[in-house]
Structure formats: structure tokens, C-alpha cells
């Protein structure tokens, strides 16, 4: 693995070396290393599509799976399907992410379609980072789709972050929750230049006691554009909360379109949305501590997205 690939791995998965536990590293469309463990099996897909199947046994407690994707070629496009089968009672950390370094003039593109079948009482933490770099004129495009099916009393926590270098992204997340299941999503996005980011969440709260908490924080700078759409359907005695908080700077544009649908009298659904520039008094407070206006801005954004 060369320095560039190592840098990408560090950015997206905090990996300095081959990870402990199960992993699958995908590099320019090829498997660049794979390891299964007694509890976590990684296998090629049974259909013709690109991607892997990941089987997490119910015995798994506090283990991790790393499945980073690295692309260093220009004009390279792929669509990858990864399916996670998480047995009842498992407890697992999944670290995914995609890093593209595109030095060329043509677009490179990765679409990861991740499907989670989460069994009863299972616990999943899913961390996903998207990062792009490269000095060429070629665009880095990532269109992740996440499909989540949460069994009774299971819980999935998803942290998704896109801080740098992704020129265009459409992020689609769909979740269906059975009784007592819990979904927590934390999204962080920073766009600048002429970047475009669209996020689309749709959550079906089907069972009694199901709950979802979706929080998106984003900063749109320069001429970038962001769109946030969300829909939570409450179909029983359930609670849903979503929050979309955007800082807008320069000539950026942000659209937030939240929707709540209560199909049961016992559904409790809340949405909070706020879009605005950095509050003047926040800048002033930090300036009274000796920071310049620009330093203050950087600190506020860093805190907001941390």
C-alpha cells in the first residue's frame, strides 16, 4: 500500500495499520485484504453484484469490522453492495468510509449501498466517513445509500461525516423500525467551493416503543449548496425527533424540507430546524478572548461539527 492510500485510510477509518478484528479493504475495485474472525464472517456476494456479505454472529460482543474503500484512479466509477446480517443479540462496531484521491480530469465515483438486517436486541454502531482529495479538475462523487431494518428492541447508532473534498453527494438513508427498536443518527457535513450535498432520510417507526433521533449539523461555505430532506412516519406508539441545524456562510445556499407523518394518535414526532449565519455575539465573545474574527469563525465551526 502506498503513502497516498495510507493517508486516505487514516482520514476515513483512523487506520494506521491493518486493523484488529475483521476487515475488508477495497482498493480501486479490488479486494486489498480481508479477514474474517470466529464471530464475523466476510464473504463475496452470492449474486453478480460487486460487494460483500458480512455475517455477525449473536456471540459477537464489542468487536469491530472495518470496511474502508479507497479510490486513487481518475475516471473510475463503481457501485458496491454490502449487506450486513447481524444476528439477534450481537454487539458490533462497523467502520466504513470512502476516500477518493482524484488527480485526473475526469470524475471518480463511488456509490456504496449498505443494507443492515439487524436482529432482535442487537446493538450496532456504524461509523462512516467520506473524504476526497486530489488537485486535478476531476470531481469526487459519492452517493451512499443506507438501508436499515431494525428488529425488535435492537439499536443502531449511525455517525456519518463528510468534511472535505467531496464535490457531489446524494446521501440516502432509509430505516424501518420494529417494536422497541431505536435509531440514532448523527450527520455532519461541511461543504465549500462549488460542492453539492443532498441528504435524504426516511424513517418508518412501525412498532410500539420504536424511537428515532436524527440530528444533522452542517456548514455550507462559499458557493456550495446543501439540501436536507427528512420524513419520519410514526405508525404506532412511538417517538421521533429530528433536528437540522445549518450554518450558512458566504454565497452558499441551504434548503431544509422536513416532514413528519403521524399515522397513529400515539405517535410523538418533533422536528427542529434552524439555518443561519454564525451569530454575531458568538464571534464577539471569542474576539473578547483575543481571537481574530477569522479564528473565531474557525473555532465555532470546528466545535459545531465536532
Amino acid at each position: 500500500m502506498d503513502e497516498l492510500e495510507k493517508m486516505l485510510l487514516l482520514e476515513i477509518a483512523d487506520l494506521h495499520k491493518v486493523p484488529d478484528g475483521a476487515y475488508n479493504i477495497r482498493k480501486n475495485g479490488e479486494a486489498d485484504g480481508r479477514r474474517s474472525t470466529p464471530h464475523i464472517r466476510i464473504e463475496p456476494r452470492r449474486d453478480a453484484k460487486a460487494g460483500i456479505d458480512i455475517f455477525v454472529s449473536g456471540e459477537t460482543k464489542g468487536e469491530s469490522v472495518h470496511i474502508p474503500v479507497v479510490i486513487t484512479e481518475t475516471d473510475y466509477k463503481e457501485k458496491v453492495y454490502n449487506d450486513f446480517y447481524i444476528e439477534d443479540g450481537a454487539d458490533v462496531l462497523i467502520i466504513a468510509g470512502c476516500g477518493i484521491h482524484n488527480c485526473g480530469q475526469a470524475t471518480s465515483e463511488h456509490s456504496g449501498i449498505h443494507t443492515f438486517h439487524v436482529g432482535k436486541n442487537a446493538r450496532v454502531r456504524y461509523v462512516e466517513k467520506h473524504y476526497g482529495s486530489g488537485e486535478g479538475g476531476g470531481e469526487n462523487v459519492m452517493d451512499p445509500t443506507t438501508d436499515i431494518r431494525l428488529g425488535e428492541h435492537s439499536r443502531l447508532e449511525m455517525e456519518t461525516t463528510q468534511i472535505k473534498g467531496v464535490d457531489s453527494t446524494v446521501r440516502t438513508t432509509r430505516a424501518v423500525l420494529e417494536a422497541g427498536a431505536e435509531l440514532v443518527i448523527r450527520e455532519k457535513i461541511y461543504t465549500h467551493g462549488r460542492q453539492y450535498a443532498k441528504t435524504d432520510f426516511s424513517v418508518q417507526l412501525n412498532g410500539d416503543g420504536a424511537g428515532a433521533d436524527v440530528v444533522s449539523r452542517s456548514v455550507a461555505a462559499e458557493q456550495s449548496r446543501q439540501e436536507f430532506t427528512l420524513r419520519i412516519d410514526g405508525n404506532g406508539r412511538c417517538h421521533g425527533h429530528s433536528e437540522c441545524d445549518a450554518i450558512i456562510m458566504d454565497d452558499a445556499k441551504v434548503v431544509a424540507i422536513p416532514a413528519l407523518a403521524a399515522n397513529s394518535v400515539d405517535a410523538e414526532l418533533i422536528h427542529e430546524a434552524a439555518i443561519g449565519k454564525i451569530a454575531g455575539e458568538q464571534l464577539l465573545k471569542l474576539m473578547t478572548l483575543g481571537l481574530t474574527e477569522q479564528e473565531a469563525e474557525e473555532q465555532i465551526i470546528k466545535g459545531f461539527l465536532s
Binding site: E281, T288, L289
Partner: peptide, 23 residues
């Protein structure tokens, strides 16, 4: 400016302190 004064040793505790999401 505010910054220059702060650097010369002026500190100011606000009557209504500012809140920061994230910090």
C-alpha cells in the same frame, strides 16, 4: 478592534453570556 483590545489586556464578562452549540 475587539481583538486588539483583548490582546492588550481587556477582558469582558458579558451580562448575558453567549451559548455555543458544539463548543
Amino acid at each position: 478592534s475587539v481583538t486588539e483590545r483583548a490582546r492588550r489586556g481587556i477582558s469582558y464578562a458579558f451580562q448575558q453570556p453567549v451559548r455555543f452549540k458544539g463548543l
